Amino acid sequence: MAGQNQSRGSRSNNLVVPQANAALQQLKMEAAQELGVTIPQDGYMGNHTSRETGSLGGYITKRLVQMAEQQLSGRSNL
């Protein structure tokens, strides 16, 4: 079964480049603002619906893919 080797409560989405954390947080805030999702100051998203958090995650993924495609094609606007 998936996740058997992980201790209880550990996160499986560890950043490969920890220095990218600030940029990812900024992207999350921008995406939330564009979608009209309010992110609480403490970061706890447990009071949000699955639809809200799922749409936010999907939108962030879409933006990351677009950024990667632009970089690979040499049209980086970063």
Rank of each mutant, 00 (worst) to 15 (best):
M1G: 12
M1C: 10
M1W: 04
G3V: 06
G3E: 05
G3F: 03
N5K: 15
Q6I: 14
S7R: 15
S7D: 15
S7Q: 15
R8A: 11
R8W: 05
R8L: 11
R8Q: 10
G9T: 07
S10R: 01
R11Y: 13
R11T: 13
R11Q: 13
R11C: 14
S12H: 03
S12Q: 06
S12N: 05
S12R: 01
N13D: 11
N13F: 08
N14G: 11
L15E: 02
L15C: 05
V17L: 11
V17T: 13
V17W: 10
V17H: 11
P18T: 05
Q19Y: 00
Q19V: 02
A20W: 07
A20G: 10
N21Q: 15
N21A: 15
N21W: 15
N21P: 15
A22H: 00
A22Y: 00
A23V: 13
A23I: 14
Q25L: 07
Q26I: 06
Q26W: 06
Q26H: 08
L27Y: 03
L27M: 07
K28Q: 14
K28M: 14
M29R: 06
E30H: 04
E30P: 07
A31E: 05
A31C: 08
A31W: 04
A32I: 05
A32Y: 04
Q33R: 08
L35H: 04
L35Q: 03
L35V: 08
G36S: 00
G36V: 00
G36H: 00
G36D: 00
V37H: 05
T38G: 07
T38A: 07
D42G: 08
D42N: 06
D42P: 11
G43W: 01
Y44S: 14
Y44E: 14
Y44F: 14
Y44T: 15
M45G: 04
G46C: 01
N47A: 06
N47S: 10
H48G: 03
H48Y: 01
H48E: 02
H48K: 02
T49C: 10
T49M: 10
T49W: 07
S50F: 12
S50N: 12
R51P: 15
R51M: 15
T53Y: 10
G54T: 02
S55M: 11
S55N: 10
G57Q: 01
G57P: 04
G58C: 13
G58N: 13
Y59E: 01
Y59C: 01
I60H: 00
T61L: 06
R63F: 06
R63E: 10
R63D: 08
R63L: 09
L64A: 04
L64G: 02
V65I: 06
V65W: 01
V65A: 03
Q66V: 04
Q66S: 03
M67T: 10
M67Q: 09
M67F: 08
M67L: 07
M67C: 07
A68N: 11
A68P: 13
A68V: 13
E69Q: 13
E69Y: 14
E69C: 14
Q70G: 09
Q70L: 07
Q70F: 08
Q71H: 13
Q71A: 14
Q71S: 13
L72S: 08
L72V: 08
S73Q: 05
S73I: 06
G74M: 00
G74Q: 00
R75D: 12
R75T: 14
R75F: 12
S76K: 09
S76G: 12
N77V: 10
L78E: 06
